[in-house]
Amino acid sequence: MSEYVRNIKLTALALFGFSIVGAFLLAGTNDLTWPAIEKSERDAKIKLIAQVLPAGSYDNDLVKSTRVLPADPLLGLRKPAEYYPAELAGKTTAVVLEAIAPDGYAGEIKLLVGIRPDGQLTGVRVTSHNETPGLGDYIDIAKSRWILQFNGKSLINPQPDDWKVKKDGGKFDYMTGATISPRAVVKAVKNALSYFAQHKAELLAQEVNHGK
């Protein structure tokens, strides 16, 4: 019996010992690498946001000025996301919103939408999607320049009724064989513009509060 108990104790001790050593190794590595990882994640995020903003149109720290965007069905958001105001010499030049197109061919398409205070788009980028490789994935800037046609568009250019792909009688190009993905993106961008039009005051007003 004592042999049996001793065995159990040794086993438990070994398991405990390995767990402790493992935990310390991980904690040490985490401490060591944390500053470098945080910096590279910030850089990656800034690079992503900067893609939808014209070069030289902002001089603020985009990540630091991040603000919370409440969940809103127009943006396809089920939980609060973030938005990033771009400022040049203290004046807001654009706002970058996170939006989701819920009706992609394979699930959600996540977007960053840059909008100027006058309602013109500075740019749109797809940040994550599961569209079919080789078919619907041309919405991604890495695969084609399709997404660039949104630059400079607004709710009055083209008219709201023309915010559709050409196949549906609208003004936006698409590629044969994959209309569901671009249709979802066009709709989501239009919705983001409507959201901006409705909440313009709050989106831009928060700037002023932030400035104080």
């Binding site: 070994a14 390995f18 767990s19 493992g22 991980l26 590595t29 985490n30 060591l32 990882i37």
Partner: peptide
Amino acid sequence: VRIPIYILIIATLVTMVDLLMHA
């Protein structure tokens, strides 16, 4: 308890490699 300990070792190593490479 060799299997849990081996898994512990592997998981620790993988996480460390992951963090170090990221940094």
